[in-house]
Nucleic acid binder design. Structure first.
Lengths: 112, 112
DNA sequence: AAAGAATATTCGTGTCAAGGAATATTCGTG
DNA sequence: CACGAATATTCCTTGACACGAATATTCTTT
């Protein structure tokens, strides 16, 4: 998980993710919007790829980069754990989950 | 935003956040669970504090650290932007938001 | 006030990663 | 197959940061 955060910790990489929100883009499109050299962009894309946040598809000489749902979904799931902090309505639900976890942990033991 | 990610990019800091999920804790509690020296923990807490992710409350000589809802809520809001990626049901809602943004941008101009 | 507990800060060091420059790779076209 | 377009990789250097050790601060107790 911390690897995901590390990937997003760099301003340029974070920007890339945001740019890809409007759909897949070739590398040069990103270079044009980023005020960073092409090799840098390629390197950042490599990091994002290793982190499972983006995916590539070859299109002739171009490489189309796009967001990878899995990576962002995991991130979402992590943050969601803390929802009870700011969403008071979910306190009850949080309690329920905790209860289910306790039951799961006790499965197969003598004490209920 | 990237500052938030940078704060969470360190494994020890990420762990601290997760430990604080079960409620406020004094520094020494964290030291006990982290296999890191006390000064290191204090330093990491300082970073998390600057990032707006935790808050301190003095309790005698102790300092009780607790999660700060604001910080995590912002993080959640950011990730939520990408929900349409994995949640097909929200495509329609995404469209609606885009439309509202367009309207907002055009506010006060001649062209509708 | 002295002593101790709990926590914070400073300083020096080594490591890793971002940026720049140069070069390599891949693929379509003539 | 030579060439150009689009992208990737390598090498190098510099700056940021995590760690350890030592020290400073804050507060309580006696």
């Amino acid at each position: 998980m911390h690897a995901t955060f590390a990937a997003l910790a760099d301003p340029n990489r974070l920007r890339i993710i945001e740019l890809l929100r409007s759909g897949p883009k070739p590398v040069n499109d990103l270079v044009a919007e980023l005020d960073v050299t092409q090799p840098q962009v390629s390197k950042h894309l490599r990091v994002l790829r290793d982190a499972g946040l983006v995916d590539v598809e070859a299109k002739a000489q171009q490489r189309l980069y796009e967001l990878r749902p899995d990576g962002l979904k995991k991130l979402h799931a992590w943050v969601e754990q803390y929802r009870a902090l700011w969403d008071a309505r979910l306190d009850a639900m949080d309690e329920l989950v905790s209860e289910l976890v306790r039951e799961e942990k006790n499965r197969g033991r003598k004490k209920h």
